[in-house]
C-alpha cells in the first residue's frame, strides 16, 4: 500500500525534525512548510492526504491556512489537523477564532501540545482519506 502523505506546517525546526522523523518511522511520507504561503505551495505540489499545522505561524496563522484550504473546492475536503498549545482552541476546536467563517467546516481534529504520539497516529489514521486529493 502506498504511504500516506502528511504535510507538516510549523515554524519551529525542532518540531519539524521531530514530526518528520516520527511520522516517517511510522510509515508516512512527509513534507514540511514553515509558513502558510509555503504550505499552500506544498499542498499543490506534494498533494498530501492530510495537513498537520501549528496555529501560530509567521504571517498568516494555521487557522487562516485552514480557511484558505476550505474555500478552495480543490482542497475543501483535505483533512486538516490543528496542533496547538492554546487552551481556547483546544476547548472549542478553534470555533471562537472562526466566527467570521461559519460557512466552512472546522478542523478535522485538534491535538494539544505537547503531542501524545499515539493520539497523533490515531488521528492521522482516522482523517487520512483513502483517496488522494484531486489534482489541481
Amino acid at each position: 500500500m502506498e504511504a500516506r502523505r502528511v504535510l507538516i506546517v510549523d515554524d519551529d525546526p525542532d518540531i519539524v525534525v521531530y514530526l518528520t522523523s516520527f511520522l516517517e518511522d511510522n510509515g508516512y511520507e512527509t513534507r514540511a512548510a514553515a509558513d502558510g504561503a509555503d504550505a499552500l505551495a506544498a499542498v499543490a505540489e506534494f498533494r498530501p492526504d492530510a495537513v498537520l499545522t501549528d496555529v501560530l505561524l509567521p504571517g498568516r496563522s494555521g487557522l487562516d491556512l485552514l480557511v484558505t484550504l476550505r474555500h478552495d473546492r480543490r482542497t475543501a475536503d483535505l483533512p486538516v489537523v490543528v496542533m496547538t498549545g492554546m487552551d481556547q482552541i483546544l476547548q472549542d476546536d478553534g470555533h471562537s477564532y472562526l466566527t467570521n467563517h461559519a460557512d466552512i467546516r472546522g478542523p478535522d481534529a485538534v491535538i494539544g501540545k505537547p503531542i501524545d504520539p499515539r493520539d497523533l497516529l490515531e488521528v492521522l489514521e482516522r482523517v487520512c482519506s483513502p483517496s488522494p486529493v484531486p489534482a489541481s
Partner: peptide
C-alpha cells in the same frame, strides 16, 4: 503555559530522536 507546551514538544522531539 503556551510557551512551556511548545518547549515540552521540542524536548519530546529531542528525546524521541
Amino acid at each position: 503555559s503556551h510557551g512551556i507546551k511548545g518547549l515540552l514538544t521540542g524536548l519530546d522531539g529531542g528525546i524521541y530522536m
